[in-house]
Design a protein around this nucleic acid. Structure first.
Length: 286
DNA sequence: AAAGTCAGGAACTCTACTCT
DNA sequence: AGAGTAGAGTTCCTGACTTT
């Protein structure tokens, strides 16, 4: 596919993903979404997978369950209500889809998040050195971040990066994800001179942007489960762990380190969430 | 190269029911 | 109320092919 064609496709597909993310509960049909992207339904299918690496139905499901996880965390809303709020016609089919994706039932996630935040007690403090990265600034709807990682992988392959080691993918989050205008995301590879890699890795990575994340103190939490739960886990860390920790959030960006190989089953994925923190200027009262 | 069509199989959701 | 299972119907995905 020509680069100019791919760029055009990405814009058209971004319109589709935006429409889904804007209203996950709506009935999103293949033909109407294809029309939004100005393709025939059949051709749309092929283009969509070629550009995003996933099927349209997978995107819709991912966005819905991602939204559902956010609604479940820290809320007492009945599961049947949340099922309806994200577009499922019955609590049964919602619960099944949710368990397949997260390995948890909706009520289990709700309970875990209320029992001090899905294991927020497992948070530990780490002092990290500066981390040099190469990557891409994400553009478009946040729901397309996985697609940016896919482009990054393609560019890295093209640049001759072979034998990518585990733990070499990272996401750099700056700002408030609730407000897309104030939020930026950098999808990155940890540079080989920093990552614990083996084998020959070429340094020529044309098309990628360099960034060095500041070192310092981070609160670290290992999320075991699908990436769908990342946002919900951030919410727990900010709302449950941070206020009780005696620390304050620092101005440095938050980090997500993807520790699983591509293709790992969602339920088995490991993501290290790193929240930059510092001690308060004066000790907290009480 | 890009876009459109078709057909068959795969995957999904819903409903109904039972169990905890 | 929530979870698990099975069957039926619907929708989606994909490969092969044709047309522009």
């Amino acid at each position: 596919m020509k680069a100019s064609t791919e760029a055009s496709y990405r814009q058209r597909i971004a319109r589709v993903v935006e429409a889904i993310a804007a209203d996950p509960a709506a009935e999103h049909r293949l033909d109407s979404l294809a029309a939004l992207a100005a393709f025939s339904p059949y051709h749309f299918h092929r283009v969509y997978r070629a550009v995003t690496g996933e099927a349209l139905a997978d995107t819709i499901r991912r966005i819905r369950l991602h939204h559902a996880a956010s609604l479940l965390v820290g809320s007492n809303r009945p599961v049947v209500e949340i099922a309806g709020a994200v577009g499922y016609g019955s609590a049964q089919s919602f619960a099944r889809a949710f368990r397949e994706f997260t390995s948890l039932s909706p009520s289990e996630l709700q309970r875990l998040s209320q029992d001090h935040g899905a294991g927020a007690g497992a948070v530990r403090l780490r002092e990290l050195p500066p981390m040099p990265l190469l990557g891409l600034h994400h553009q478009g709807p946040l729901s397309m971040i996985p697609h940016t990682f896919r482009r990054l992988a393609a560019l890295a392959t093209r640049a001759g990066w072979h034998g990518r080691a585990p733990a070499s993918l990272a996401g750099v989050c700056q700002g408030d994800p609730e407000s897309e205008a104030d939020f930026s995301y950098f999808a990155a590879l940890i540079r080989p001179d920093h990552a614990d890699t083996q084998g020959a890795l070429a340094v020529d990575a044309a098309g990628l942007t360099e960034m060095t994340v500041a070192g310092g103190r981070y609160a670290s939490f290992i999320l075991r489960g699908p990436y769908t739960l990342i946002n919900a886990t951030w919410e727990i860390l900010f709302s449950a762990w941070l206020p009780a920790s005696g620390h304050e959030p620092d101005h440095r960006p938050a980090l997500e380190l993807y520790r699983s190989e591509p293709g790992t089953a969602p339920a088995l994925c490991e993501t290290e969430l790193l929240l930059p923190v510092r001690l308060p200027a004066s000790p907290p009262l009480g």
